[in-house]
Design a protein around this nucleic acid. Structure first.
Lengths: 129, 129, 129, 129
DNA sequence: GTGGTCTAGACCACC
DNA sequence: GTGGTCTAGACCACG
């Protein structure tokens, strides 16, 4: 389980963590029942403030992605994988709708928009290889 | 020139103002040379603090969208329209690239993605009519 | 007596007027005893607010460059020419001292400074021809 | 890092701060990566309002002299030193050109001008010792 | 603790 | 009337 956080890119660090952990769960990198790194350990790895890790873990607990096993640590909840996947997709759809909506409202030609999107897809594929 | 600000939607009020004014300039709702509403007048209209309007206007001045005509008010700069349009488009392209990139990285099928986009476009058109 | 005012170059319009009138007096373009244009006339010529001209004239009266001849207008005072010349020179010396002082304090090499000055002189001569 | 602000000398306080901080960066008094005093701390030191400090810091951020490290403070940007130095020099050159230009246009003899400048340099050196 | 935003109200210079 | 600056004090998110 490797995370990369970028301070000062606008998104709060704790939120970057939340997203990346959800992603890892959705991908099956960590499976339900498995323990996540301890607050101190993860904070040390990423050289960030333990409070920040703590806050991310708290949010994940409130969303029932993680659960506390007293004395042992935090584990991925049973139904978490399914929830993370649908979470991610609905979130993506929402953001996509929003940005596309704004593009259309700003008078951007539909074909020009599709062109931009194809370019974005190609770039994403290229950078992911 | 009608603006609508929504406090507490995450985006600072002054930034909402900046965006909407740039939009108005890009759309030609206000043309170069024309005066924008006075600080006090706009603050009264939107029932926000004059300082908040002032801040938006200052940022627009630093971006050379507005210029101060001492004692008379603030006017739209000559080259502002072109700058606002290109601003808007590059910003949109950036956000589009980002969200599409994340979708692709999250393993979303390209055809499913295109389908989502078409749906978003249709919805945007429908809600705009 | 031709003036050129530049709104929004930082210096207040009334102050630009004051300077240019003093300059004209120092150069002998207008001689002591001669009437200056009326407030309304000058405001019309320069397409500026009569209040602004009025303010410039008031300041010149308080500095005894102009004097009011009731019912006839404003005339250049007797000793004004000498005063304008020395005014101008002391003002220049002061500003020069200030900017040179800052240059030296900022660690600019003296020879580099002299070089800059020679360049500025040459440019001033060229643009004045 | 010691600053001295003078209220009511014409230049806004926040601008005095901006200039002095740029100067400090140019001089290497503060180095890239180093944190500047916190908004509250500096406001307390100078007995001015935190908002005024905030405004100076914001302008420095928009000029990429400072960057915000969330929750930790504001740090000097990497390329800031070079930028501050060139900033300062071009600004000085501009002001020098302006004042020398006016001197020449006012009919001041070139040798008399050079004499004034030498005097200004000597005075600057003397007062700086 | 940090910076960021907002309100309220004041004073100034300029037109 | 206009914009520009400053103070005072509040609340928020973040680490």
């Amino acid at each position: 389980m490797q995370f990369s956080i970028e301070p000062n890119n606008g998104m709060p660090i704790y939120e970057q963590l939340v997203r990346q952990i959800k992603f890892a769960v959705a991908e099956g990198v960590v499976v339900p029942g498995q323990l996540v790194p301890s607050v101190r350990e993860l904070a040390r790895q990423l050289t960030i403030n333990p409070n920040t890790v703590q806050r991310a873990y708290q949010q994940l607990q409130s969303e029932e992605i993680l659960e506390s096993l007293r004395g042992r640590g935090l584990a991925v909840c049973i139904g978490a994988k399914r929830r993370c996947i649908s979470d991610r997709q609905s979130l993506l759809a929402e953001r996509l709708t929003e940005v596309v909506g704004e593009a259309v409202r700003s008078g951007l030609d539909h074909d020009r928009l599709r062109e931009l999107i194809e370019k974005a897809i190609k770039q994403a594929i290229r950078s992911g290889e």
